[in-house]
Design a protein around this nucleic acid. Structure first.
Lengths: 259, 259
DNA sequence: CAACGGGATTTTGTATGACAAATAAGATTG
DNA sequence: CAATCTTATTTGTCATACAAAATCCCGTTG
């Protein structure tokens, strides 16, 4: 009952409950990833963000702390918040990856993703062959079964992702887990291509099956090779439309920091 | 009415300016990484953390938002903050890596790190051979020169780290950058071993030189092989003390998630 | 008695205001 | 002109109040 004076005008209920700090983090994060605020830039101060998004300084600060945790920013008194150099960004974070993916060219992004997959997945398959537990193998087989039962290409994406994540898990190296995000992003975005260039889907399941059999037999070298076959196939799906659309033979790997 | 003049009740100045929310984030993060609060656990609520650390709820919330950004937590009203499953953690984040490294057995951690390095760095070397710019090559050579001029083993760590980071940069794939953290952690911790088991330091520089020459000559396969030689050497440095200290032949890769 | 629904309660989410601390930049002074 | 002091700006921290969400409990009702 202690009403204590009066209600200070108090801005309107601010729409039904939506996590404002999350929106703010996405808003600021997007602007960083899309180059509006390149590395080294001093961001607007907290009060300005608050006005831009019609939010309180509290919400702004929490958003900034979130981005801080992702390595995009550092804040110091009297200075403000400065965008960190790209190599400090946690690009493997789900949100950062999503903002990044939204900002850059999808095709170039997919090529980068596939390059990393070609490095990682064969190595993971080698480890998996010698280390997978029976239970992990069962999950791998379950994912494969899910791919077999998929009605159409779209329904195959989910078990496909599950398959590759299960493979990573079979490697039993916890530092490999963060790359699951790369798998998810790659396969999710790949779907846009597979619908347009349906590259003999009948062979996809047998190729995955080869990987499973090699890992079940603990044959590391066979697992490695089977994984390369799988990746080659994926590269073909991506590569075809690229060659058809891209003209220039060599583009700069990623836009220079200068501008 | 408002006690403007002197100090109101107001808790003591709380020690000279130290970022409390950072301390809190470290405190909570450490407790998560060391297993005090395993995945799935409901954390104490914000008020309780505030009492534990003698900090305001605001500071606690900002710390939690930081951990949120690192994928360690999710918070929901009425529920509280729950520890996310390990596969959602951003293990490649600097802070998370540091907390993790402090909590787990150093030797086991180094073995995991080296496994990932064996997968990644040869692949990065292959890409580097075909894609490095002259400037990137120059930085690689500068790091090598820094290793040559190092007075002792300790002075070699910094240019060594720079060398491997430069190699990653030569690959010109931005998704490879996050691994720089693995390199840094690996070499920093490795130093504890190399000082104790100084495995013929005279060969280290020539082996790095082989990598540089292969990349300069754009010989991808030679770069790959030279990198393997380098990694084999490191494995030897780690492996020797391990075999001397560890008894049990096979331990579970990482403590299983009970449920 | 059991299933259902609606409030009570707990916890996070947001806003506001005030002050402390840090530091860059300008003003002052020897 | 240089060293120092003041000032101004921005983040950091605290306290308080209230809103929103979601569980949980309990009463209602078939």
């Amino acid at each position: 009952m202690r009403q204590r004076g009066k209600k200070p005008v108090r801005s309107p209920p601010r729409r039904a409950g939506s996590r404002i700090h999350a929106e703010l983090a996405a808003g600021i994060g997007t602007r960083i990833l899309d180059g509006t605020y390149p590395p080294g830039t001093l961001l607007p101060n907290e009060a300005e963000w608050g006005q831009m998004f019609h939010a309180s300084r509290t919400a702004v600060r929490e958003a900034i702390k979130t981005l801080n945790g992702k390595g995009l920013l550092v804040s110091r008194p009297k200075i403000g918040s400065r965008v960190e150099p790209r190599e400090r960004w946690n690009l493997l974070d789900r949100d950062v990856m999503a903002w990044h993916c939204a900002a850059m060219d999808k095709t170039a992004f997919l090529i980068s993703l596939q390059e990393v997959r070609r490095i990682l997945e064969p190595g993971a398959a080698v480890l998996a062959a010698s280390r997978r537990t029976p239970q992990q193998l069962a999950e791998l087989e379950a994912a494969l079964e899910g791919m077999r039962n998929a009605a159409d290409a779209e329904a195959m994406v989910e078990p496909d992702v599950r398959f590759h994540l299960a493979l990573l898990a079979c490697a039993n190296n916890e530092l490999l887990a963060p790359f699951g995000i790369i798998i998810e992003q790659a396969l999710a975005n790949l779907f846009a291509f597979t619908t347009r260039h349906n590259a003999k889907p009948g062979q996809v399941v047998p190729m995955h099956d080869d990987v499973v059999r090699a890992i079940a037999a603990q044959d590391a070298e066979a697992a490695r090779k089977a994984m390369f076959v799988l990746l080659d196939d994926t590269d073909n799906v991506i590569g075809k439309p690229i060659n058809a659309e891209v003209k220039e033979p060599s583009a700069p790997p990623h836009s220079a920091a200068s501008s």
